[in-house]
Nucleic acid binder design. Structure first.
Length: 445
RNA sequence: GGCGCCUUCGUCAAGUGGUUAAGACACCGCCCUCUCACGGCGGGUUCAAGGGUUCGAAUCCCUUAGGCGUCACCA
């Protein structure tokens, strides 16, 4: 059996759509699971669509996602160049060979001379797809395709066949949108007398719009590129992991959290799904959270560095420990920690809590003595604060929740905080804590 | 419109003639708890519809419907 070789062949648009990333991932996983090669080839034959720096962007994105090509424009390889615009002579040669053999012809147009592929008028073309089985399309559906454009560039339909053959690609993994043009490619392989690769056409990734309608994932569904997701503060590993499961599932296992190595080990073609998958942010959030929870406090603090810059080393690590179990993406951090920096406006209503039997009135009775006790605390550590408050609770004979509630509100002016009262006291420091408590007390009075 | 592909809980999905139709996310409830979260326990909802084939169908066949794709000198 020939060596397994797959390729990812994006056009350089400067945008890595999640669907494309998934295609690249599956091609990579399949190649690696078979001990084969994964190659990156840039299909830049449409000069109008070219975006500068896009090639570099694509390589950076794949690297961030840990999808490492064996051959690429940057790495090079046995079949270089890997950028189609640098292979024009090759396409010209093969196109002319087709003309010479009567499988294609020149066409004179206003734009210049182009070469078209001659399609059979009758009969049908059948090819095998791993996911879909045999697919047959009548040749009468096919029109004579342009092979070489008047500007000398090949079309996708031509270049991809030439390159896949020359680069010895064994398995073509791409989106379903190419199913109907595959017969044209198959005919080309036949004209040249080349061996057919194996086709695997992947179902698209869909998105759910605000109004509940489902359509192919696009910008109107919010962040839909790998880069958007990174910007939002998802970990690359989490994104890759989630995307892997959008259209593939492991055999004989319910595992969901996968490292790249585990994905490679578990990946099989028959785990691929042939129906479209809807991108679900809720599940991405969950999975992302699992990655954060699994991190050490130090690693999380590093990852969240730019959001925790205001805190000293000790508090940074401590905050990280509180945040990492509550965050789905790093950008969730600012709204959660804003109150530490700036206390939200005073709101007496917040002091009312039915479950803990707290009222603004009751709060005054708790805050006043609590402040007195905290003022005497010199060793402002979690441990000491905990002991002092526990002793105070005991003294008052109140339920712990009843005591904590007014303290939390006074310190944060919000019902929900990352961490308990002791944690907030520690994060705020003695000075700021007492300022906030006294302020609340006087406003309540 | 022609042609092609697809159709199991709200979402991701397992399942390949005999299962109480897995599991996960989400949702709801309970427990834990100084809040939220975490964690623990439990719950509801699914084979698009209709015909066949079969002792027996989510699994095989046909029809219908819906969704998606494609009909470019774009990929």
């Amino acid at each position: 059996m020939n060596r397994i070789r797959t390729r990812f062949a994006p056009s350089p648009t400067g945008y890595m759509h999640i669907g494309n990333l998934r295609t690249a991932l599956y091609a990579y996983l399949f190649a690696k699971s078979q001990g084969g090669d994964f190659i990156l080839r840039i299909e830049d034959t449409d000069r109008a669509r070219y975006v500068s720096d896009a090639v570099e962007f694509i390589e950076r994105t794949l690297a961030a996602a840990k999808i490492i090509p064996d051959e690429s424009p940057a790495i090079g390889g046995k079949f270089a160049p890997y950028i189609q615009s640098e292979r024009m002579e090759i396409y010209k040669h093969y196109a002319e060979e087709l003309v010479a053999n009567g499988y294609a012809y020149y066409e004179e147009t206003e734009q210049g001379r182009a070469i078209r592929q001659k399609m059979p008028r009758v009969g049908e073309t059948t090819f095998f797809d791993v996911l879909h089985g045999n697919i047959t399309i009548a040749n009468s559906e096919l029109e004579d395709q342009v092979l070489l454009k008047s500007d000398g560039m090949p079309t996708y339909n031509f270049a991809n066949v030439i390159d896949d053959h020359l680069m010895e690609v064994s398995h073509i993994i791409r989106g379903t949108e190419f199913i109907t043009s595959t017969p044209k490619h198959v005919l080309l392989y036949e004209y040249f007398g080349w061996e057919l690769p194996t086709f695997i056409h992947l179902a698209p990734v869909m998105g759910k719009a605000e109004d509940g309608t489902i359509s192919k994932l696009s910008k109107r569904h919010g962040a839909t590129s790998f880069d958007d997701l990174i910007q939002a503060g998802y970990l690359p590993e989490a994104i890759t992991n989630y995307v892997a499961l959008l259209g593939w599932s492991p055999k004989n296992s319910c595992q969901e959290i996968f490292s790249m190595d585990e994905l490679i080990a578990a990946f099989t073609l028959d785990g691929l799904s042939k129906s479209p998958a809807v991108f679900d942010y809720a599940k991405l959030d969950w999975m992302s959270g699992e990655y954060f929870k699994a991190m050490s406090d130090e690693n999380f603090a590093d990852a969240a560095q730019k959001y925790l810059a205001d805190f000293d080393a000790d508090r940074k690590i401590f905050l990280a420990s509180l945040l990492k179990t509550r965050v789905a993406k790093l950008s969730d951090i600012p709204p959660m920690t804003a109150f530490l920096k700036n206390l939200p406006p005073f709101d007496a209503e917040l002091f009312t809590n039915k479950r803990n039997k707290v009222t603004p009135q009751k709060s005054v009775e708790i805050l006043a003595p609590a402040i007195k006790i905290l003022e005497t605390v010199d060793d402002w550590t979690l441990d000491t604060l905990n002991k002092k408050i526990a002793a105070f609770v005991e003294e008052t004979g109140l339920k712990i929740g009843t005591v904590m509630w007014p303290l939390r509100i006074a310190l944060s002016m919000q019902k929900v905080t990352p961490g308990g009262v002791t944690e907030i006291l520690y994060l705020l420091g003695k000075n700021e804590s007492l300022i906030r408590l006294n302020d609340a007390l006087s406003k309540l009075n």
